[in-house]
Measured scan of single mutants.
Amino acid sequence: PQECLLLEPGLNEIMANSLDYNERLWAWESWRSEVGKQLRPLYEEYVVLKNEMARANHYEDYGDYWRGDYEVNGVDGYDYSRGQLIEDVEHTFEEIKPLYEHLHAYVRAKLMNAYPSYISPIGCLPAHLLGDMWGRFWTNLYSLTVPFGQKPNIDVTDAMVDQAWDAQRIFKEAEKFFVSVGLPNMTQGFWENSMLTDPGNVQKAVCHPTAWDLGKGDFRILMCTKVTMDDFLTAHHEMGHIQYDMAYAAQPFLLRNGANEGFHEAVGEIMSLSAATPKHLKSIGLLSPDFQEDNETEINFLLKQALTIVGTLPFTYMLEKWRWMVFKGEIPKDQWMKKWWEMKREIVGVVEPVPHDETYCDPASLFHVSNDYSFIRYYTRTLYQFQFQEALCQAAKHEGPLHKCDISNSTEAGQKLFNMLRLGKSEPWTLALENVVGAKNMNVRPLLNYFEPLFTWLKDQNKNSFVGWSTDWSPYADQSIKVRISLKSALGDKAYEWNDNEMYLFRSSVAY
């Protein structure tokens, strides 16, 4: 590609939709070469300064400071330590791993069909083939991996386009969902002041979706909304933040926050679980009234959910574990990228498509890292959202599997949720969690119950496949010279610098 592309739109479109291996590689590498390399010296300084700040406030390091958001002291029976968070994340991840490994094996087999000769049947997945710029969410792999393609499509993007949905309609439908469970409408100022579409040439905007509580009843969302099912669900997520903000607005200023950061992320995700169900999509006209649910549509639905929800958990866990180790000084600065990709291979089963030396800073190419967000919130929120969903479905008197529950129109479920939201940070999160779900610790069981039918199906699908991955295989081993030459021509001086062995191999191949 010759034109100058922004991340959004532009590069993200390539990473969402392109099936051209080399075009995807160009976009993936260009973003890291342009952005990651510029941020490397800044990120090194950032780590030093943030650690100084944390230690001045009596924390061991900046990662310890972040984990302090979960700490509860002096509340008998509800205490929770920063170290306990690490333990809980690690042991819940071990419980999730078998499901993830089977999802990984299934996706690898489907990617082998889409990119023959580029995928190893026992290796890691190349990082640039996973549906977005970071491989964070695998949602866009659904069209390549759908188990029963002859069934009606449960990705309702086409239906939204056919019905001329726009950003306003998407957010109005999200608002209807919250109102149906007894939560309030958005304010008039929300509709007047939010930026729900890309302003285009009028001004440059950071398009990463964010929710804003500017105080004095001024709530806004910034999002360059596209007419897709993914953005339909994202709208519910962002509006969930606003509902939380509005619910605790009466609290004293210092207590106007989520019980912990994971709670804030979980609220909209609960609504997304219901909004994505075929039952709900039928009720708002995005699935045909004669759409029939059966075992095959159930597996299609659960796989689509797993690509988004299960596929991202190792990504989140590994990223934050790397940062915690960096802040603690356990990874020397001259080994940041080496350790990043070692951990990516070992924990996530994902491999870099071309080698990256220590001039890169791949983590900082992600919005949340370069903008100083702690990231473990996206792991804890996933466990909380299924715990909350299970409890709210019980309040809504849902009968049947958890993945079929739609809590819309249940004011009982809405009241149970609101009673927790309005507390803000005035009560320990362990107590707030217990008030809703009857337990005071994160628990992976509801998530595993939700995906149980899919897990059973995946194990059957993978019975003749290798489950797990070898960390030795690299996608650039066989194609390295071709890849390096093409990237050198595209990126010039910003391309990865060849070492002596690679230059010798190149000259030998040319001479041959």
Rank of each mutant, 00 (worst) to 15 (best):
N140S: 05
D230S: 04
R220S: 13
Y378S: 07
E269C: 06
R381H: 06
Y373Q: 07
H237T: 07
F375G: 06
R377Q: 10
E261A: 06
N257H: 02
Y378N: 03
R256S: 08
T187V: 03
R220W: 14
A250M: 04
F137A: 08
T308D: 07
R256E: 08
E192P: 09
S272C: 03
R381D: 09
K216I: 15
R256A: 01
T308V: 04
D218Q: 15
R220H: 12
Q305T: 03
R136W: 07
I309W: 03
T210Q: 09
T308R: 03
H264A: 06
D230H: 02
F367T: 07
H208M: 05
L214E: 13
N153P: 06
F375Q: 04
S272I: 08
F375C: 05
Q188A: 05
L233A: 09
F367L: 09
K304V: 04
M229P: 11
N193K: 15
F367C: 08
T308N: 03
F137S: 08
V206W: 08
H237Q: 08
A250C: 01
F301L: 09
Y378L: 05
P252W: 10
L233C: 07
T234N: 04
V206Y: 07
R256C: 02
A249W: 15
M229R: 08
R381I: 05
R136K: 11
S374L: 09
E192I: 07
D230F: 02
H241A: 01
D245T: 03
Y378Q: 09
A250Q: 01
H208P: 10
T210K: 10
E192K: 11
A249D: 11
P209K: 10
T234W: 04
R256L: 08
T139M: 05
K304Y: 04
H241S: 02
D218R: 15
Q305R: 08
E192D: 07
E269I: 08
H208Q: 10
D372T: 03
H237L: 06
H237S: 05
L214S: 14
H241D: 03
R136S: 05
H208L: 07
T308F: 03
G215D: 11
Q305L: 01
T308P: 03
V206D: 10
E192H: 10
S272Y: 04
F253M: 11
W212V: 11
V206G: 12
L214D: 14
N153T: 05
G189D: 15
N257I: 06
S272M: 07
V206S: 08
I309G: 01
R136M: 07
W212P: 13
H368S: 05
D230P: 04
Q188V: 06
G189L: 14
T139A: 07
F219A: 14
F253G: 13
H264P: 06
L233Q: 11
D372G: 04
N193I: 11
N153L: 06
T308H: 02
H241I: 09
T187A: 01
E265T: 04
A249H: 13
T187N: 12
N257T: 07
N153Y: 06
F219D: 13
V206E: 10
F367Q: 05
M246S: 11
R136T: 06
T308Y: 03
T210S: 08
G217H: 15
M229T: 10
R256T: 06
Y373K: 01
Q188K: 08
G215C: 01
Q305S: 07
A250P: 05
Q305F: 02
N257K: 06
F137P: 03
L233P: 11
I309F: 06
I309Q: 04
A250S: 05
Q188C: 10
D213N: 06
Y373D: 09
T187I: 07
G215Q: 05
V206M: 04
T210A: 06
H264Q: 08
K304G: 07
D213F: 03
L214F: 00
W212H: 13
N257W: 07
V206K: 09
N193G: 14
R136V: 05
L214A: 11
R381C: 01
N193S: 11
E261T: 07
Y373T: 09
A250Y: 01
D218H: 14
D230Q: 03
M246Q: 11
A250L: 06
D213T: 12
V206L: 07
R220A: 14
R381M: 06
H237N: 08
F375M: 07
E192W: 12
F253T: 12
D213V: 13
E192R: 10
D218C: 15
T308L: 04
G217E: 14
D230Y: 07
N193Q: 00
D245W: 13
M229A: 05
K216S: 15
N193M: 11
Y373N: 12
T187W: 12
N153A: 07
E265A: 06
A249L: 00
K304A: 02
H241V: 07
R377F: 05
W212S: 13
G217F: 15
F375E: 08
E261K: 10
N193F: 00
T234V: 03
E265V: 08
S272D: 04
K304I: 05
E192A: 08
G189W: 15
W212A: 13
F301V: 04
N193D: 14
F219V: 14
M229K: 11
E265M: 07
K216V: 15
T187C: 04
G215P: 14
N140K: 04
Y378T: 05
I309E: 03
T139I: 09
T210H: 09
D245A: 02
R377K: 02
Y373A: 06
Q188L: 10
H237R: 07
W212F: 11
K304S: 04
F367W: 06
S374D: 02
F301E: 04
N153W: 07
A249Q: 13
R256F: 04
V206Q: 08
N257P: 13
H241L: 04
F219N: 11
D213C: 10
R220L: 12
R136N: 08
F219G: 14
T234S: 08
N140V: 04
F219H: 10
G189A: 15
Q305K: 08
E261G: 06
I309H: 03
N140F: 04
Q251K: 12
Y378D: 09
I309R: 01
T210W: 08
Q305N: 06
E192G: 10
N257Y: 02
R377V: 03
D213L: 12
